[in-house]
Design a protein around this nucleic acid. Sequence first.
RNA 1: GCGAAAGUGGUGGAAUUGGUAGACACGUCAGACUUAGGAUCUGAUGCCGCGAGGCCUGGGGGUUCGAGUCCCCCCUUUCGCACCA
Length: 867
Amino acid sequence: MNYNFSEIEAKWQRAWRDSRAFRAVSGEDRPKYYCLEMFPYPSGSGLHVGHLKNYVPTDAFCRYQSMRGFNVLHPMGWDAFGQPAENEAIRRNRNPREMVPEYAAAYRETLIKTGCSYDWEREINSSHPGYYKWTQWMFLLLLRKGLAYRATAPINWCPACKTGLANEEVRDGRCWRCDSAVEKKPMPQWFFRITAYADRLLADLEKLDWSEGMKEMQRDWIGRSEGAEVDFAVEGDGPPIRVFTTRPDTLFGATFMVLAPEHPQVAALTVPERRAEVEAYVRQAQGESEIDRLNAERAKTGVFTGAHAVNPVNGEKIPVWIADYVLMGYGTGAIMCVPGHDARDFEFAKKFQLPIVQVVSRDGSTHELAAAEPGEGIAVNSGRWNGLATADFKKTISSWLQERGIGRATVHYRLRDWLISRQRYWGAPIPIVHCPACGEVPVPESQLPVLLPDVENYRPSGTGESPLAAIPDFVNTSCPKCGGPARRETDTMGGYACSSWYFLRFADPQNDNVFASRQALDYWLPVDLYTGGIEHARSHLLYARFWTKVLFDEGLLGFEEPFLILRNQGSLLALTPGRRPRSQEDGGDSGEKIVDWIVLKHDERKRIPADQVVWRWARMSKSKGNVVTPDEMIERYGADSLRVYEMFVAPFEDDVHWSEEGIQGSNRFVGRVWRWLQAARPFFRGDWRTARPGTTTPESRQVRRKLHQTVQKVGAQIETFQFNTAVAAVMELLNAIYSYAPIEKEALTEGLDPLVVSELAETLVLLMAPFAPHLAEEVWQQLGEKGSVNRAGWPAFDPEVAAAEAVNVMIQVNGKIKDKVSVPLDCDGETVKAEALGREKVRQLLAGRQVVKMIFVQNKMLSIVCR
RNA sequence: GCGAAAGUGGUGGAAUUGGUAGACACGUCAGACUUAGGAUCUGAUGCCGCGAGGCCUGGGGGUUCGAGUCCCCCCUUUCGCACCA
C-alpha cells in the first residue's frame, strides 16, 4: 500500500489545529523550552524551500523536546514593518496595510502545510497597533534613561530608499538593500545610545553558546581598542587638538598631525595664505562618495594648514595637515602621526617629505627605516624613557600625561550609536511632540500608541522628509506638557526596533497593560534556542541584546542575555540565469565593484538568446527568479519527504545547492518506512514491553542492538543539531529492519518474534516523529496508541541491548592494517595477541622477523612492530 | 592586509576526536518481479591492476606503532573586517 501523503498530511494538520496540539500554556509544571526562529518579513514572493532550511530542522528539534517532556514554546510572527514590506507595496502599487496581512496569511498557510508545530495562538504582527504601542513604549523607556537622543549629524543617506541608514546597514559604502552608493547628509535624527553598552555587549559574549564566528563578528563590530587621548597644544591661541592613539609610547616619533577634513577645528587652524587650498580640499573630500573614501588602495592626499602644534613630550613644533585618510567618525577625528611605526603615516610622510623618526626598536639599536615598523619593542629616541618595553611605556606615559592634565588612558569603540529615524511611512511613529515652548516632549504612555495614519500616498517624499509630514491631521497636535500647539515627530522607527523585543512579546502576546507580564517572562524567557541566518550577525542580534540589557537594568527582566544558544542555518542556492555585464555596467573606471554576472531581469528572460545565458548558483530569492516553493514540493512528494530532505541533504549550517534529485531519495525512504510499518501492523502487539520476547535468535539480538544504538544516536544528534546524520541513522536502522524482516516474506513474522517486530515498529514510529510527523501520527493511531505522538515519550535505550557482542580488532604490522580478528567485546590483550599470532597471514608476515613491541587498544586494534 | 571557517569518490556528505577512510543518500551498472514502470526488491559501485597486491582525505614536510584528525610550510575557496589611528 502506497503512502497517500496528501490525504494523511491534511488529516493531521486539521487534527493538530482542532486539538490545539501545539499550544504553549504558561506556568505548567513541565520544564519549559523556548525555541525561536528569527521571524520573517512576509514578502509577496512567499516562502521558498530556502526558508525551510531553518524552520524544518528547528521544528524537528521542538518536536523532539516535546517528546522528551518539555513544555515547548514555538511561536511564529511577522516582522511586518519596515522598508522591505514598504518597497514591495510601492512596487506593486498596494497599500502595505492591506498587503502585509495577505502575505502573512500566505506564509502561515505554507508553514502549516510543512507540518511545523507553531503555536498560532501567539502569532504576532509588528505592524499591528497592539504591538507597536509597546515598541513606542520601549522608545520612551530609552528616552527616559537617557539612551535616546536627537542630534543633527551627517548620516548615511540612501538616495534610492530616500532614508537614513544605520551604520550596520551600510556595506562597502552601499545600501544593504538596494546597493546604491550611500551619501553623507546632515539631518536631525534620533539615535539610541548603544555605545553606552559597548563594554557589556562585548564582555557578555563570553556567556553565550554561539558559533565562534558569530561572536567574532560582534567583537569586530564593537571594535574595542585601548589607548590614550592626548592633547596637543596649538601654536598661538586656540584650543588644543585632541587625538586618540593606541600607541602613546610612540609620542616621541610624532612628527606631524593630521585632522579629518570635516574636523571642526580646521577652519580656525588654517592660516590665511593656505585658506583657499584647504577649503578646496575640504570641498573635494565632501564630494567624494563613501566608497571612494573607503578604498584603502588609493594614494594618500592631504594639504598643510599652515598651523603647528607642540608635541607635549619634547616640545617640538610639528605641522598640522588635513587628509581624508583620517576619518571624522572614529576616535577624535584627529591623529598624531608616527611615520616610523604606522604604515599609513609612513606613506604620507614619504609623499610630503615629512620627517621620520624611529622610536621603537627590537633590540634597542637604531637604523634607517625602509618601511613603517608597527610592532612592539624597546623605546629609542624617547628621552628619559629610552629602554622601556612598549607595554610598560604605554602605562607610564599615560599616567605622565594624566598628571599634567594633557591626556589619559581611554578606550574607544568602533561601534556607533544606532540611528533609528526613518523618513518613511511604514514604521512605528516615534512618540515625540515638538513644542515651540517645551522642546521635545515625549507622548505620555496613556496616549500610546501614536497611530500610524491611514493614507493614500505613503511613498517617500523625495524631499528627505517623512510622508507623515504632509498629513496635517497627524502633524498638528497639542503639546502634552503645556497644551499649546505643537508638531508631531514625523520620522518612524526603523524595522530593527520591532525585532529588538519581539521575542519577549511571544511570552504574552495579547497583553494590553504591559509589553509582557513579568510572570510570563520569568516562565518562558530567555530564549533557549534561537535560529536564523548569519546576515543578522551584527545588526539585529546586537540591538536585541542591547534592549534586553536596558530592560534588565530597569528591573523589568531577570536576565541579561536574550538568546542563550544561537545556531545559523545555511542557505539554499539555486541555479540562476544571468548574463555577462555590458561594458557600461562593469563598473568602468568609476566604480570599484567588479561585477562579472548580472541576474536576468524578468523581461530579459525571453529576450536573451539561450547561448548567452550564464547559469550560476545564487541564494534563492524571488527577485532572482530562482525560487522553488515548498508548495510545489509538497504537492509532488509530501511535506514529510520535503522535511526529511531539508534535514538530510547537508549539515544545518551548510549552504546547499538545491536539486530535485535528492528529494526523491527522501521520498523513497519515507515510503519504505510506511510500507514496512503497514506490513508489520497486523502482527503488532501493544504489550511487547511487558510480554518480553520469548525467543532470542542471533538475528533478533542483532536487530534490537541496532535499534537501541539508533535510539541513542538519533537523540544525541538532534540535540547537537546534526540532523543529517540523525536521519541517516534511521535510514541505517530501516535497512537493518528490512534485512531482518523483509516485506516479501509471506508472513512478516514467520520465524520471527512478533514482540521484536512490535518493538521495532513502535520505536521506528517514535524515531520518525520529529522528522516525518504526519506519517508518525497516522501509524501511531493505527497501532492503537493513544494521544499525539508528539506527546509520547521519546524511546529509552537499553545500553545492555545496545552493546556489541563481538568486535573486529584490526591487526597492524608495522603500521599497516593486514588482518582482523573477531573477538568478544572487551576481550583482553593476551587473548587477542595469541589469536593474532596464530593467524596464517600474520605468521607469514612475521616469519624471520623479530617482534619489537605490540600495542593493544581494547576493541580497536593490535599493532605489531617488528624488525 | 587582518581575522575566522573549510578543502574527503562522479555528486551531497559520514568518520565515536589519534585507531577498519568513504556511513547514509544521489547517480550509475547488473539482476528479480512485472503488460508496463520515472514503482518496488536484491546486489555491485574510491582509484590502478586479470590477479596477488598497490595507491587514496588540496600540496609538501614532521610527530607517532598508527594521522582525514596533532604540529610546521605552501596552495585554493568561502565568509567577516579593513586608511579604526
